[in-house]
Nucleic acid binder design. Structure first.
Lengths: 168, 168
DNA sequence: CTATCCAGTTGCGACCTGCAACCGGTTGCA
DNA sequence: TGCAACCGGTTGCAGGTCGCAACTGGATAG
């Protein structure tokens, strides 16, 4: 997957960055699913990414500085993948893409509640979320009583999951 | 390029839709460049898309109902490609993606003024733009004195182009 | 009548995708 | 101590996609 720079258009450069099946999906899992290890990304992926593809994508995302990688202090073999400021700022893009997808694509209820909350929350929620992500991934310090958007999104997802389970 | 539906997640489904190098770029040219014919899309593309790829993408975008196609009344061989409501609603996605790209990727000044205006204009400008696109592509009737965002974007681009030319 | 334009199509090599099997090293547990 | 499970990947392979260049048959303009 070469880095080309065919033109300086922001949309074109964005597609040279994300114009493939998996890059954004991997970032989504790190961002919204808080998956930080290779194995988590591999096996807990809703879509079943192949291990070689995941390895190649992570390598590429590292080169593009959209993720960073460090050793896990508690396990010699584990690597921890983190978002960078560059990828944290994709939150509004995810929000808009999710809003569009929710409206125009055959999404499932459970997997789209997060997108719904992100859409309804608007820029204020996105900022709170990005702030939280900076705490988690960049080690930024935050107020002890700071809002956890991630927990809210996760709770809403699990509520839907339970509701869907009941309906069966 | 198969249509898979590996999961009902809006981000995943969006990537199944746009997860390739060219789909969004083609839509960008139709939307912002007002390119309506195959040849315009082929030869005036800043990035130089290949004709077979363009043909395949247009076919796919037709299947996905992201563009529509009709005969040109003034020329028996020409086909006119138009946006649909579904693709017109991608305007906010383009705006956010453009904003992110402008901040984090090596964009050129000329090709990113449009993105800058779209970003600064916010949701109000996006709505005006989408309304104009509905007039152009869906044949919706609009007020005679309605604002032309397309013309504003184009004018700003040409201003930058001239300024860049002078600097050489 | 001829040059040009029209929307694509074809052939080809290189690269990418997806799957399954596998690797050497580490860890947790009996 | 022994061993199964887990760790982050790698390898091989078949099939599909990408990108380029050359080309097609029909329509149009002068």
């Amino acid at each position: 997957m070469p880095l080309e720079e065919r033109s300086g258009c922001p949309i074109n450069l964005s597609m040279e960055t994300f114009g493939d099946r998996w890059s954004l999906v991997v970032l989504r899992d790190i961002m919204f699913g808080n998956r930080r290890h290779f194995r988590e990304l591999l096996t807990q992926s809703e879509e079943g990414i192949a291990s070689n593809i995941l390895a190649a994508r992570l390598k590429r995302l590292l080169d593009l500085r959209l993720v960073s990688k460090r050793a896990d202090p508690g396990h010699k073999q584990k690597a921890i993948y983190s978002l960078t400021e560059k990828s944290i700022q994709l939150v509004p893009v995810f929000a808009m893409l999710g809003a569009w997808g929710r409206k125009h694509l055959p999404v499932s209820r459970e997997l789209s509640v997060r997108a719904q909350l992100l859409e309804e929350g608007g820029p204020a929620l996105w900022e709170a979320f990005m702030d939280e992500l900076r705490g988690i991934h960049l080690g930024a310090t935050r107020a002890a009583d700071a809002r956890s958007v991630l927990a809210e999104l996760q709770a809403a997802y699990e509520r839907e999951l339970a509701a869907a389970g009941c309906r069966k």
